[in-house]
Design a protein around this nucleic acid. Structure first.
Ligand SMILES: [Mn+2]
Ligand SMILES: [Mn+2]
Ligand SMILES: [Zn+2]
Ligand SMILES: [Zn+2]
Lengths: 140, 140
DNA sequence: AATTTAATTGCAAATGATTAGCATTACTAA
DNA sequence: TTAGTAATGCTAATCATTTGCAATTAAATT
């Protein structure tokens, strides 16, 4: 039950603004893995007055509402994607930048196999793997 | 065979300086998970003239030489630890900040069980899990 | 529909971690 | 010793993200 419509926002004491609608729309259509600046650039196409601050503020809000996930590839900025229903992780190619997704129930697997993880109430599991994709591996 | 002594550094065209010795020493004794600023603070105790730039430069160098690993907890800065021989990962408590380590051959496990990972030449696998430790779970 | 009020925005300035430029210092090899 | 050149210590950039604040504006109330 991800909060996304006007009604749900109002119920939470927040307002449904055109900026927020636009930003959510861009993230949804974007097929994930967008960074703040890319969202900003796309948003300005529709609403040239929108500010980068609003993008960042909206991203924080969507993260808190569990609508989006923040991804930390090995870079100096973050990426965002709509929260999927299935647990999935990412492989990023250091050669061409391509991101490959794969679904895997890693958190429950670790809970079963790692004693130390049993005593913990794990709320976030993040895995980031990088290397070289098949295509990039050839060209070297 | 981690490069650490004067001889090995010289062989690589680098110099063995008192600053580098001090920083390596602090990281080694620190039992891992120190951040740049903590290393800086400790180092200044011994060598008040040492600069933060030198800490960062040395950290980059040690990372490149595979002497230390850079850890990315869900924070705005990084942490460092001497590279262990056994593959291990971390659980960080959001309540008290405690970091629990556990050894697990996760990269080979994923290579065997994730089809998408087979086409990739994975060079880095990073896992960061956070949640609440047993003690912190009680106090709420 | 007009009014109220507080959340949200846009803009500019601030942060905070990390990096870069450069003159000065000090390892190393000869 | 000395010459050659990494490395250091400053200070000043970067760069992504956050914050302060006056001006807007969504939405609850008359
Ligand atoms: Mn994804
Ligand atoms: Mn560790
Ligand atoms: Zn590639
Ligand atoms: Zn705890």
């Amino acid at each position: 039950m991800p909060i996304t419509g006007r009604k749900a926002l109002n119920r939470a004491g927040m307002r449904f603004t055109s900026q927020r609608a636009l930003i959510m729309e861009i993230i949804r259509r974007g097929r994930g893995h967008l960074d703040a600046d890319e969202i900003y650039r796309q948003a300005r196409g529709k609403e040239p007055r929108l500010s980068l601050s609003t993008v960042y503020r909206t991203l924080q809000m969507l993260k808190k509402l569990n609508v989006v996930d923040e991804l930390h590839f090995d870079e100096s900025h973050h990426h965002y994607e709509v929260k999927h229903s299935a647990e999935h992780y990412h492989l990023k190619c250091l050669g061409c930048g391509k991101v490959v997704e794969f679904s895997y129930p890693l958190s429950s697997y670790l809970k079963e196999n790692v004693p130390a993880a049993r005593d913990f109430d794990i709320t976030v599991t993040e895995v980031s793997m990088s290397g070289y994709c098949a295509r990039c591996r050839r060209g070297r």
